[in-house]
Design a protein around this nucleic acid. Structure first.
Length: 345
DNA sequence: ATTATTTGACCGTC
DNA sequence: GACGGTCAAATAAT
């Protein structure tokens, strides 16, 4: 089946987004010792992932994959103008390359269920109700270096996925490319030169730079993670070929930039968010029942992905119903969600 | 005390 | 005037 229209692209997107969600849950499940029921649940996950693979490969037939790899244009094969949009199949994200805009500078758009996981640190500097949008728009600036002009806007999309037990999608608009790497490299070079030239004790030197903002006191070189997607051709080349492997692997970056807080997990920038299910039920004795326990743990673990469970599940009374619903699906693997017409049922 | 977040006010564009 | 984007004072968190 050739992917020659938007409907196929949307279907593939939904299939892979579902697979990604499954992989997250499977990871969570496998993070602790499994009893017999846990093993059954893991097997159900595995079978479902196999089905996702099969369906994805059916959508992305071999000739398409070859063509995409050769032309560096997955989007073209998916019926999306190659210059405008690209699909990251490993994460279910839609990504556009950077392009220049007179009003905003250089911009790039991305559709992702994990808007905070892009390898950078951000600080929120505003939010705004947007006309005809159900959700507020959040504004972030790069927090690695105050001089870095990179910004991003995060806008949650229609939450119909909520009814399908899928994480909501966010449109992330990146404005300006990061200069923090260059700025820090320059700072390091300047600091090194100063240390070499100066006869004062190193401590004094460091303080001197700190006073002038040259040395970042919160600096941690290990955090100098590259952006997860930079629009480079190498990554595009690999994306299609390795995507399905990445789906089952989760393809998650380290949680360096985990952005979530109890008040606003979708927008906050650094706190570790604990989902309401974990806060309310946690790992209490009441949850020792096998399936319920597993689901609770998985939902808790999934919070590491930054998925805003409170937004998905709230209000609280509805959260209980949803919890029960998921438990029911776990308890009976034969009713694990079937995908039809691009939607989980 | 310092840093991060929130949110109403302000500004530029259409 | 409406709207989106940003600023900055107030507040919260660490």
């Amino acid at each position: 089946m050739a992917l020659d229209d938007q409907r196929d692209a949307n279907k593939l997107f939904d299939v892979l987004a579902g697979g990604y969600d499954l992989s997250i849950r499977l990871q969570a499940l496998l993070s602790s010792p499994l009893d017999i029921r846990g093993q059954q649940a893991a097997m159900a996950f595995s079978l479902e992932l196999s089905r996702v693979f099969k369906e994805s490969m059916s959508l992305l037939n071999c000739s398409t994959v070859t063509t995409v790899a050769k032309t560096n244009s997955a989007a073209g094969a998916l019926g999306i103008p190659a210059r405008d949009k690209r699909i990251r199949i490993d994460t279910g994200e839609v990504v556009t390359p950077f392009k220049k805009s007179r009003e905003e500078g250089v911009t790039r758009k991305e559709i992702t269920p994990t808007p905070h996981k892009d390898g950078y640190e951000w600080r929120k500097y505003g939010q705004k109700n947007i006309q005809n949008c159900k959700f507020v728009r959040y504004y972030f600036k790069c927090n690695r270096d105050r001089r870095c002009e990179a910004k991003k806007k995060v806008q949650q999309q229609d939450d119909r996925r909520r009814d399908l037990l899928l994480p909501p999608l966010f449109e992330v608009t990146y404005v300006n490319e990061h200069t923090c790497h260059v700025l820090r490299a320059n700072d390091d070079a300047a600091a090194a030169r100063y240390r070499t030239m100066s006869s004062s004790p190193r401590r004094t030197t460091t303080n001197h730079f700190r006073a002038f903002g040259v040395v970042d006191t919160a600096r941690n070189d290990d955090e100098m993670l590259p952006p997860r997607f930079v629009g480079g051709s190498a990554e595009e080349n690999e994306a299609i070929v390795s995507c399905l492997t990445a789906v089952i692997g989760g393809a998650l970056p380290p949680p360096a930039a985990a952005e979530a807080s109890a008040r606003d997990p979708a927008a906050a920038s650094s706190a570790c968010y604990v989902p309401p299910q974990q806060q309310a039920a946690g790992h209490s004795a009441a949850d020792d029942d096998g399936a319920a326990m597993m689901v609770t743990m998985m939902m808790a673990e999934s919070s590491d992905t930054g998925f805003p469970w409170d937004r998905l599940c709230c209000p609280a009374d509805e959260a209980d119903d949803m919890h029960v619903d998921i438990v029911a699906r776990f308890a009976d693997t034969t009713v694990w969600p079937q995908q039809t017409c691009g939607a989980w049922r």
